[in-house]
Design a protein around this nucleic acid. Structure first.
Length: 427
DNA sequence: TCTGGGGTCCTAGGACCC
DNA sequence: TCTGGGGTCCTAGGACCC
């Protein structure tokens, strides 16, 4: 008999698949998508996986291999991926309201209430519709817990005989799937814990599930114990349909070249502060503290000692670009160390609160001035979000458009679906 | 030459209090 | 001379995820 089930819908090679949507000529052609700065490989089509290019590989290390294999290379195009993700999620909601959007390319569905004998047929139909309406291929895993649904989805992807849908519903079937899964591939078991578990002779997910829970708890803590429960069929995680209230908002970038000059860091930090505060305003939130961090090249020995950060607290929570930028620049002045070659920097906005709950300040020097600042901000957001605007058309003076810190992005595809200037052309 | 960005949660240890 | 112990709060760092 079948108990209650969760499904995980997982887009296959999502970014690579997005690049194919408006380029059907790339069907069957090996594709990779690179991270910001064209730094590492963050998505690979099946053909590239077959070539043996690992996930996360630094581009400069695999460049020759990619070229030799005739691989088509893309810089990341998040405007496109975000829009395609929205289309897939919309289809899921038309199937059921009980959906948790887990990431840009994955969602859980609560299948409680679905008759067991029709689940597989329903999921096959859902998969076919997503493919037909968005041209994105997905795999669907079904299991009694989120972690088992994840494992099922992995099986659906790897075992082509399953046709893209896999359900784990019996003990025998579940055990055989766990036995085929390396423990490090289990959702919640990362590199560090994998190493620790392997050293203790725990190699497969089944080995892990068969340990006494106390031992797991002792070895890798409560998070590991939850994963253990889930693998053994007890739910430790539920479907969360309402996204939680965010607790932080970060904008950061690696630089294309090392940066040592304070003035250049100011430009970068001002840009990050503007981006983060804009995102906050979009969600009607405000920040109570601002933290700036500066990082040296993490692949250099001794770089950790060069890293630094500083925090400033605002008198009143704010999401105003001018106020956030001023705070961030003050924090930068505290964190900056002369003579360090910085490779990355960022702004974190913390102690967030919803805007409507903000108390007007009793001691504000000039409420009228605050209003004007607020109105100006609204006007700027309006201009920058207009479909005809180029990115950040209106911005404050501390920022400049060129500099060592700007990222490289040489191979980006057009923003087909979100920019009038970049619509696909039919010829 | 060239190694992503944005999140959350947990834990250990220090500060502080009585 | 003898110099506690337990609780709470905060923070930094480490772990995980996609």
């Amino acid at each position: 008999m079948i108990g209650k089930m969760f499904a995980l819908v997982d887009c296959n090679n999502f970014y690579a698949s997005c690049e194919r949507v408006f380029r059907p000529d790339l069907e069957g052609v090996p594709i990779v998508v690179l991270s910001n700065n064209d730094g590492c490989v963050i998505a690979r089509s099946n053909e590239v996986k077959a070539l043996g290019v690992p996930m996360g590989a630094p581009y400069f290390k695999v460049k020759d291999m990619l070229n030799a294999g005739g691989v088509k290379i893309f810089s990341s195009n998040y405007a496109l991926y975000g829009d395609m993700s929205g289309r897939v999620m919309t289809i899921l909601y038309s199937f059921s309201p009980e959906v948790e959007i887990y990431s840009i390319d994955e969602a859980f569905i609560d299948l409680d209430g679905f008759a067991p004998n029709v689940i597989i047929a329903q999921m096959n139909a859902l998969r076919a519709n997503i493919k037909k309406w968005t041209s994105i291929p997905v795999s669907i895993g079904i299991g009694p817990t989120k972690t088992l649904a994840k494992i099922a989805a992995e099986r659906a992807k790897k075992d082509l005989s399953l046709g893209g849908v896999c359900m784990l519903d019996g003990k025998t079937q579940t055990h055989s799937a766990l036995n085929l899964t390396p423990v490090g591939d289990v959702w919640g078991i990362g590199r560090a814990w994998n190493k620790r578990l392997n050293a203790g002779g725990i190699i497969t997910a089944l080995d892990f599930a068969n340990q006494p829970m106390q031992l797991v708890r002792k070895k890798i803590g409560v998070s590991g114990a939850r994963t253990w429960l889930e693998l053994n069929g007890t739910r430790a995680f539920v479907i969360e349909m309402q996204p939680g209230i965010r607790k932080s908002c970060i904008s950061s970038r690696s630089f294309s070249k090392n940066v040592t000059v304070l003035d250049e860091l100011k430009e970068a930090i001002a840009t990050f502060a503007a981006r983060a505060s804009e995102r906050l305003r979009g969600e009607r939130m405000a920040a109570g503290t601002i933290s700036v961090f500066l990082l040296a090249n993490r692949f250099d020995e001794n770089s950790i000692a060069a890293n630094s950060s500083a925090t400033v607290t605002l008198d009143n929570p704010s999401a105003n670009t001018v106020e956030i930028t001023q705070g961030a620049l003050a924090a930068l002045a505290k964190a900056y160390k002369k003579g360090i070659a910085y490779k990355k920097a960022g702004v974190s906005l913390l102690e967030l609160s919803p805007m409507h709950s903000l108390q007007p300040s009793l001691f504000s020097a000039a409420p009228d001035k605050e209003n004007r600042a607020h109105n100006l901000q609204i006007a700027i957001d309006k201009i920058n979000s207009s479909p005809r605007a180029v990115r950040d058309m209106v911005h404050i003076g501390a920022r400049k458009q060129k500099g060592n810190w700007h990222m490289r992005q040489d191979m980006r595809s057009p923003r087909y679906t979100t920019s009038w200037r970049e619509l696909p052309r039919v010829t």
